[in-house]
Design a protein around this nucleic acid. Sequence first.
DNA 1: ACGGCTCGTTCACTTAAGTTAAGAAATACG
DNA 2: CGTATTTCTTAACTTAAGTGAACGAGCCGT
Lengths: 192, 192
Amino acid sequence: MQDILFDFISKYVSLNDEEKNAILSLDLFRSLKKGTILLKEGQRSNESYFVLKGCIRTYYIIDGEEKTTAFFTEMDALTPHCVATKTPSQYYVSCLEDTIVTVSNSDMEVEVNTKFPKFETMCRMLSEELLAKQRLDLDEFKTSSPEQRYLNLLQNRPDLIQRVPQHQLASFLGIKPQSLSRLRARLLEKKS
Amino acid sequence: MQDILFDFISKYVSLNDEEKNAILSLDLFRSLKKGTILLKEGQRSNESYFVLKGCIRTYYIIDGEEKTTAFFTEMDALTPHCVATKTPSQYYVSCLEDTIVTVSNSDMEVEVNTKFPKFETMCRMLSEELLAKQRLDLDEFKTSSPEQRYLNLLQNRPDLIQRVPQHQLASFLGIKPQSLSRLRARLLEKKS
DNA sequence: ACGGCTCGTTCACTTAAGTTAAGAAATACG
DNA sequence: CGTATTTCTTAACTTAAGTGAACGAGCCGT
């Protein structure tokens, strides 16, 4: 499990044994049961997550309805908005499956970043990369129809369609569950 | 004009005179005429921009149609996707108005980050903040209708509605220009 | 000043998503 | 094991966005 983390880190910086041990000594790993809520609307938090196994999602409750907007699976990192801005959270974060994550808090990060500038470099690179990637996601969402978005998801993250409940997928695609059902039926028609 | 930059930086780190001079000596400032294209689809680039005055936008050409997806105005920073990933760009970047920006390239940034770790800290904080903020934008987009998105824009960035052509606003909102016209007409109806 | 373009709006028509409701299927739980 | 609850699908109807076309207004360059 640690290897997954170090493999990921090695994409950005190379760590020596001392540095690896420093990270391990922080005792970051945690196992979470399906359904565990990591963050609620209105709460403050300073915890960031990195998913080693499983899946966590973010969702809002708007007019009493759950609106799922993002899924984080293996090798995905999540720093909730409220952590970056020190404000109460606008959304919930919870485990869709039994999940293993690393949990870090901002105090730890400040400390590690100071001690190992290399680590800060990694965080900067990672954030910049995710920022650019997320921009593409937003652009793709803006420029395509629900049907195209579904087909795209089928291409790029087929695992999600298997492991995530339909109604959560629907709101992730920006539509209602009924529309997703219909859309899928329509696509099956077309194929045949 | 320099003050705008230093005011912005001061939100993240405080610079002494030596550091400020180091930045000024890089000769970052540039004036661009309306219509200037900073980046084309397929091109590679290592330049990042920070808008001091004016407006730049990103757009795609899909099936021969321009799809505008983002606007960057005063105090906005843009590192195109292709810069972060060293790949050819998928979109265009161009000036909507006469614009004054700072331009930095990745080599410079590596150099400055090495010389002034403070600067790297700023970049990391900024990226993390933008990443979190952009996540909210995407979430808002997913969870609301075109009409709500328009009303939201009216609230949060009323200046855009004034300074940007309607058809570009439309694709920014994820709809066709005709739909935006209709939507606006509908809202005027409702008000009266 | 003229002709050509782009831009915004409007209209009629098509298509797809939202809404409401009902029922079937799957899942959770005592 | 059976009941309750959640989830998924289907259907009928409503609403809004997409499409194609036309028109007028403003802008550009010659």
